[in-house]
Simulated scan of single mutants.
Amino acid sequence: MKNILTALLLLIVAVPKTAAQELFKNGELTISKLEERTWVVETADMTTMYILEGDDRAMLIDTGTQCEDLDEIVRKITQKPLIVVLTHNHRDHAGNIRFFDKVYMHPADTIIPIDIIFEGEYKWLQEGDSFDLGGRHIEVYLMPGHTPGSIILMDHSINASFTGDAFGSGQVWLQLKPHVPMNDYYASCARMEQLMNGHNITKLYVGHYPYVKRPLDINYILDMKVLAKRLSEGDTTGAKDYPNMGIDIACKNPMIVANGQAMIVFDPENIN
Rank of each mutant, 00 (worst) to 15 (best):
R136Y: 07
P181A: 12
M143F: 12
L195D: 11
L153Q: 10
V172I: 11
G198A: 11
Y141P: 04
R191G: 02
G128N: 05
G207V: 04
M192L: 15
N183H: 14
P215H: 01
Y141L: 08
Q194P: 11
N159T: 10
H146Y: 15
L176Y: 11
E121Y: 05
K213E: 09
L133I: 01
I152Y: 03
S150Q: 10
T163A: 08
L174H: 02
G198K: 06
A190T: 13
H179T: 15
H156Y: 11
F118P: 01
M192F: 14
E139H: 04
F162K: 09
P178E: 11
V206T: 15
G168W: 03
V180E: 00
H179I: 12
F131H: 01
S150E: 09
W124D: 05
V172D: 02
A166N: 00
R191K: 15
R191I: 00
Y122N: 13
L216K: 04
Q175D: 15
E121W: 02
P215C: 02
P181T: 08
A160C: 06
H199N: 15
L153F: 13
F118W: 07
N159H: 15
Q175I: 13
C189Q: 07
M192H: 10
G145H: 04
F167T: 07
G145M: 07
L142I: 12
L174D: 05
G120L: 07
V212G: 00
M196G: 05
D132Y: 03
G128H: 02
D155C: 14
Q126F: 03
L176P: 01
I138K: 04
Y185G: 10
V206N: 08
A166I: 00
D129G: 01
L133M: 00
Y209F: 12
S150A: 14
M196Q: 04
L195I: 15
M154V: 15
Y211H: 14
A166F: 00
Y185I: 09
S169C: 13
Y209N: 02
W173N: 15
H137Q: 09
G128L: 04
Y209Q: 02
G164L: 01
Y209W: 03
E119L: 06
Y122V: 13
A166W: 00
N183I: 08
N200S: 14
V206Y: 05
V180F: 02
P210Q: 09
E121A: 11
E193V: 13
A190Q: 13
S169N: 13
S130N: 13
D184M: 03
I158F: 07
H146E: 09
S169Q: 08
F167R: 06
M154G: 01
P178V: 02
N200E: 13
L153G: 11
L174A: 03
G128E: 03
Y122W: 14
V180H: 00
S161R: 04
E119N: 09
G120H: 07
A187G: 04
W124F: 15
A166M: 01
I201K: 11
S130A: 14
K213G: 04
G134F: 04
P215V: 00
Y186R: 12
